[in-house]
Simulated assay, not measured.
Amino acid sequence: MKVVIGSGQTKYDGWINSQEDELNITSIESWNRLSEPESIDALLAEHVWEHLTYEEGIRAANYCYQFLKPGGYIRCAVPDKNFRNDWYQQMVKVGGPGPADHPAASHKIVYDAKTLVSVFEREGFQVTLLEYCDENGDFHYNYWNEKDGRIGRSFRFDTRNSIEGLGMVSIIIDAKKPLIIRNRSQN
């Protein structure tokens, strides 16, 4: 089972689409209605975590961990605090406009790569950074396969980007649940 969290109008073959009213990622009851623990192969969340507080993001990461199979993963993308573009930063700022079709869902946090990685690592995930800007604003890209979860607001797929310049970037990570789980307490 592969699930897109907060899919909006996004639809991918082989993936189950969910909206917040179908899967509230901060509610264990909502997860239990979706599936059994350790039953999900992959999760995809594009620009979802910034609509949660830091603490809610940690809780959501914990639930993802509980419901992913060993070896399963979540591909997560959020706006990048270190991207040096004034227009972009105005759009993604805390309390900012959020999505046009859901203005009440404004951003509660703007992540840098280290903070986003830490949210998932503290829950036991092995995290790989795929795209991000470092503290100096320099953009970094590691190849990733879109078949494992396509991120539209990415270097390759956002039409505002080109080799000459970046117009829209995200921090993109793959957070994998290890195949062998060492002693770990569930929150």
Rank of each mutant, 00 (worst) to 15 (best):
R84W: 10
K93P: 05
R84C: 14
P70Q: 09
F120H: 05
E46K: 11
Q90V: 09
A42C: 04
P70G: 09
K93C: 15
P79M: 04
Y88E: 09
H47D: 13
E123C: 15
S35R: 08
V110D: 08
F83K: 07
E56V: 00
E50L: 00
L43T: 01
I109Y: 12
D80G: 05
I58Q: 10
I58A: 13
V94K: 07
E50H: 09
D80A: 11
P37H: 10
E56N: 00
R75K: 09
C64A: 15
E55N: 11
P70H: 05
N82D: 15
G71N: 04
A42D: 00
N82E: 14
A77S: 15
Y65L: 10
N85Q: 09
E36I: 14
A61K: 09
V117H: 04
E121G: 01
S39Y: 06
D112P: 09
S118F: 07
Q90W: 12
C64V: 09
E38H: 06
A45P: 01
L116M: 09
C64Y: 01
Q90P: 06
S118R: 08
I74Q: 02
G57R: 02
Q90N: 15
Y54V: 10
E38V: 01
A113Y: 10
G57C: 00
H47A: 11
A113P: 03
Y63R: 04
P70T: 13
G95N: 02
F120C: 02
I74C: 05
F67I: 03
P97K: 12
N62C: 12
N62S: 15
Y88T: 12
W87V: 15
F120S: 06
W49A: 09
P79Q: 03
R122W: 01
L52P: 03
I40Q: 04
V117M: 11
Y65Q: 11
N62P: 03
V119A: 10
G57L: 01
H102L: 08
G124I: 07
G96A: 08
D80S: 06
G72D: 00
T115P: 01
W87Q: 14
G124D: 03
A104E: 15
C76L: 05
C76H: 06
N85M: 04
H107M: 08
P79H: 07
V78P: 05
L34E: 02
E36N: 14
K93E: 12
A100S: 12
G98H: 06
K81D: 10
G71L: 02
R59W: 14
V119E: 08
A113N: 07
